[in-house]
Nucleic acid binder design. Structure first.
Length: 295
DNA sequence: AATTATTGCAACCGCGGTGCC
DNA sequence: GGGCACCGCGGTTGCAATAAT
């Protein structure tokens, strides 16, 4: 037995709202302040609409101080940074942008911002196809969701775009060397799979490259987070980047090497790998050392 | 000018989470 | 503790407007 429908579908009106319907809904909410039961509301005010539809109409269009369109550069940066960090959690992203609704941001991302940052759908679907299979030495291939790949692709793309992390510095302030030490020590200490010995190895390794290392603080979010990091050679020509995703009890780690092409102004991915965090965070630093030696 | 393709956005749908009985 | 009803969210759809042919 399935769940009962929230309303009698054959009796409710669908499609665009008329000004009269909007007025009825607004009047009721202005009079009563809040709605305790959206399902009962349409019947109360004589609307032939589903309660969910009423709620959506109010939240997305009728409630005061809603902004539509005209997203600023700063808003673009915030949306982009948060998308990289938390993915398509539109309600959380909307909470950081006063006057914007999750629906509006979602539409804006899907129809414009994604294209602006990642190129045409043809371009980024091609890149997604290249990234969608991560084979590693243990044969534990892992298919990533398009959303996760889009986030990785975006993070890589940002390097060669006019939109850079630097533009979002308020959200992603680079850590000082001291902060890096603290963050890494804390991160490793919190990871049950990395013992004290590994800690003492990993931290000095990082410190050795501290001058060339950029770790970005992720914005505070209610659940899940992502840490982005980059280790570069002195000239910023080659390096290793990594993304650690933390979503509840699940943690994943991806990293890849890149070679910067001054001619095209873009970065060429040399290799990539994916592993659970417990495989060893130090792998990133070993790969970086190997890359450095190969120069 | 007519037709077709694309874009942008409002609205709907279905599912998971939560609270109440 | 289980079942039910509702809320809230993210994904998807439908359609009008606009652009391209």
């Amino acid at each position: 037995m399935g769940r009962a429908p929230c309303c009698e579908k054959e009796k409710v009106k669908k499609g665009p709202w008329s000004p009269e319907e909007d007025e009825k809904l607004k009047s009721y909410i202005h009079l009563h302040g809040t709605v305790s039961n959206w399902i009962a509301l349409p019947h109360k005010i004589g609307l032939k609409r589903c309660g969910k539809s009423c709620r959506l109409r109010w939240l997305n269009y009728l409630r005061p101080n809603i902004k539509h369109g005209g997203f600023s550069e700063e808003e673009d940066n915030i949306i982009c940074s948060l998308f990289i960090s938390i993915g398509s959690r539109w309600s959380i992203i909307a909470a950081q942008l006063p006057g914007r609704t999750d629906n509006d941001i979602k539409n804006y991302w899907n129809t414009r911002l994604k294209k602006k940052l990642l190129g045409t759908p043809k371009q980024y679907s091609s890149n997604i196809n290249k990234l969608s299979y991560h084979g590693d030495s243990r044969g534990t291939a892992q298919a990533l969701t398009n959303s996760a790949i889009e986030r990785l692709q975006l993070q890589m793309q940002l390097q060669q775009s006019t939109f850079s992390f630097n533009n979002a510095s308020t959200l992603w302030p680079p850590m000082s060397v001291e902060e890096v030490k603290v963050a890494r020590t804390g991160q490793l200490a919190n990871n049950n799979h990395v013992d004290g010995a590994s800690c003492s190895v990993a931290t000095p390794t990082l410190e050795g490259y501290a001058m060339n290392c950029t770790l970005m603080k992720s914005p505070t979010v209610s659940s899940g987070s992502m840490e982005l990091g980059r280790l570069e050679d002195g000239g910023g020509r080659r390096g290793v980047e990594f993304v650690k995703e933390m979503d509840g009890s699940k943690e994943s780690l991806y990293w890849w090497g890149y070679d910067f092409d001054a001619k095209s102004g873009g970065a060429t991915k040399l290799w990539e790998t994916a592993a659970s965090v417990d495989v060893q965070l130090e792998g990133i630093f070993k790969d970086f050392e190997q890359l450095s030696h190969s120069l």
